[in-house]
Computed example of a mutant assay.
Amino acid sequence: MPELKIEREHTLGMDGARMLAQRWREQAEQDWGMTCTSEPGETADRMRFERSGVSGALTVTDVRFDLHIKLGFLLGAYSGKIAEKINANLDELLGPVA
């Protein structure tokens, strides 16, 4: 199974990062048909998501977003385009990588 790992640093603090993760969750559920569950923690929150052919987790801390996605066989052929779309989405939410 192809995997994507996308890591982004931020300066939002934990409260800001949680707000942004919630916006990402809403978009994932509405636009991409994902089922998401959140696991809040003291120093990091984890959001698990899945739909047919895709599963993964978004880990949010006060300084980083770590996105780990597993693609099924059929979507694996599009992993480059999927990574490009996710990075564009994160750029829109966080600003481009410096």
Rank of each mutant, 00 (worst) to 15 (best):
G33V: 03
D66I: 09
E84V: 04
L71E: 02
E39Q: 15
G72Y: 09
A83N: 08
E50G: 09
G33T: 04
R51W: 01
D66A: 11
M19D: 14
Q27I: 08
A21L: 03
S55F: 00
L67D: 09
Q22S: 14
A77I: 08
D66T: 12
A44E: 14
D45L: 03
W32G: 05
A83W: 00
G41N: 09
T43K: 15
E50W: 00
C36T: 15
D15F: 07
T43F: 15
Q30P: 03
L74W: 11
S55E: 14
V63C: 09
S38H: 11
E26G: 09
E84A: 15
Y78G: 04
A21Y: 02
S55I: 02
L12F: 05
Q30R: 13
Y78E: 06
G76V: 06
D66E: 09
D15Y: 05
R48L: 12
T37D: 13
T43Q: 14
F65S: 10
E29G: 04
M47R: 07
L20E: 00
W32A: 15
I69F: 00
R25F: 00
G80K: 09
M47E: 15
Y78L: 14
K70P: 00
K70D: 03
S79H: 09
S38L: 14
C36M: 13
A57Y: 01
G41D: 08
G13F: 02
D45F: 06
F49T: 06
G53Y: 07
S79K: 14
I82K: 06
E39T: 15
D15K: 07
A28P: 01
T61F: 06
I82H: 08
R48K: 11
R18T: 10
R23K: 10
A57R: 02
V54H: 04
M34I: 02
T35N: 10
A77V: 06
R48G: 13
T61Q: 02
F49I: 04
A21D: 06
T59H: 01
D66C: 04
I82P: 08
R18D: 05
L58D: 03
M19G: 15
M19Y: 01
R46Q: 11
A44C: 09
H68E: 08
A28D: 00
E29T: 09
V54W: 02
V60Y: 09
D15S: 10
M19C: 01
E50L: 01
Y78Q: 10
G33R: 02
E26N: 09
M14K: 10
G72E: 10
L12I: 02
E50R: 10
C36W: 07
Q30V: 12
G72R: 12
V60E: 03
L20V: 10
G72T: 11
T35V: 13
T35H: 10
A17S: 11
D66P: 00
G72L: 12
Q30G: 07
W24T: 06
E29V: 13
I69G: 01
E26H: 05
G41A: 05
L58W: 05
D15E: 14
E9N: 12
E9G: 14
T43P: 11
L67K: 05
R18F: 04
A17L: 04
